[in-house]
């Protein structure tokens, strides 16, 4: 039984995968039995009653109420049973437990990106802790996509302008494949992601360290991403115009004057201090409104911001 299932289906890696597979296998055996019946009768009748002599008259069989009722009612009962079975499992799978870990998913031609409760982001790889209910809150930035994890037996269309849920509880640690299942254009078949189901310790470590993608990026690129995603861009422009805070353009190496009258040449240490303890030195002409990013930015991200500011001449 199990070997047949493993041959037909992907690994069972979520709490409700077994339920879906049980119904799948039930329908498989049931329809196989019906198929054998149909195929056997078709072939057997065709052979047994093949024409041996031309021009014979045949028996007049037009009705058999008992037979007709049997072959109408038995399938009817069976399919109604299957309907309830399928609906129950469907309804059960679509309810998220209260303690679910919520992760935002965005589909955009042709990438999946993920945002975790602590603000961590990742692209094309989704990390989740094992045995913990997961609720994905998904939307699309352009066309329809569908988030499909075969080994979890879940799939949901991702629709622009709307949030939709996907719930599952992963039970098997390791890498799992994510596909886009709704046709979305040229690289539809390349719109994949890796789902990494980690032990809670490994998951926490990953959150701490950030996605590997961060380590692959050029520091200035990473800095630009941080500037956009962490909201730096709402106060600090990069084109020299004045915002709530000083513009980043040409600031590195410049001598800044502070509210208390002191001055300093902007260098790596000053930028680092301004991110982690912004009230320490407030540039003259600005209000002390910047919040601290202590604990919100990883070391590598701070380095990225510094590299980015250096580049803005």
């Amino acid at each position: 039984m199990n070997s047949l299932r493993d041959w037909m289906m992907p690994m069972q890696a979520s709490e409700h995968a077994a339920k879906i597979d049980n119904l799948y296998l039930f329908i498989f055996w049931l329809t196989l039995a019906f198929f054998i019946l149909i195929a056997y009768l078709t072939v057997a009748f065709a052979w047994k009653y093949r024409r041996k002599k031309e021009g014979v008259l045949t028996v007049n069989l037009q009705h058999n109420l008992a037979l007709e009722l049997v072959w109408s009612i038995i399938p009817l009962i069976l399919v109604i049973g299957i309907f309830f079975w399928g609906f129950n499992d469907y309804a059960a799978a679509s309810v998220a437990p209260n303690d679910a870990l919520e992760i935002h998913v965005t589909g955009k031609k042709w990438n999946w990106s993920f945002e975790y409760p602590d603000g961590t982001r990742s692209i094309r790889s989704l990390h989740v802790p094992v045995n913990k209910p997961i609720r994905l809150i998904m939307t699309s930035e352009d066309v329809l996509h569908a988030f499909f994890i075969p080994s979890m037996r879940v799939k949901q269309d991702v629709i622009p302008g709307r949030y939709v849920d996907l719930n599952f509880t992963p039970t098997v640690a390791g890498r799992h494949q994510v596909f886009c299942a709704e046709y979305c254009g040229r690289d539809h078949s390349g719109m994949m992601a890796d789902l990494f189901v980690d032990t809670p310790a490994k998951y926490a470590e990953w959150l701490e360290k950030g996605d590997e993608e961060l380590y692959k990026m050029k520091p200035a690129e990473l800095g630009k991403m941080v500037w956009e995603m962490k909201g730096c861009n709402s106060c600090h422009t990069i084109d020299g115009t004045k915002g709530e805070g000083p513009s980043f353009k040409g600031i590195f190496g410049k001598t800044e004057k502070f509210r208390d009258g002191s001055t300093i040449v902007v260098d790596e240490n000053y930028i680092r201090e301004s991110i982690l303890n912004p009230q320490a030195k407030v540039v003259a002409g600005f209000e002390p409104v910047m919040p601290t990013f202590q604990g919100l930015l990883r070391e590598i991200e701070i380095k990225g911001v510094i590299a980015y500011i250096k580049e803005l001449k």
Binding site: L23, I27, G86, A93, V154, A181
Partner: peptide, 27 residues
Amino acid sequence: FLILFGIGGLTGIFLGAMSVDIHLHDT
């Protein structure tokens, strides 16, 4: 036809069952 429609019709049952269809839809 009888044999192929048999397969075509019976495999429709997999897709009509909502929970199983979630896995099979668009595959």
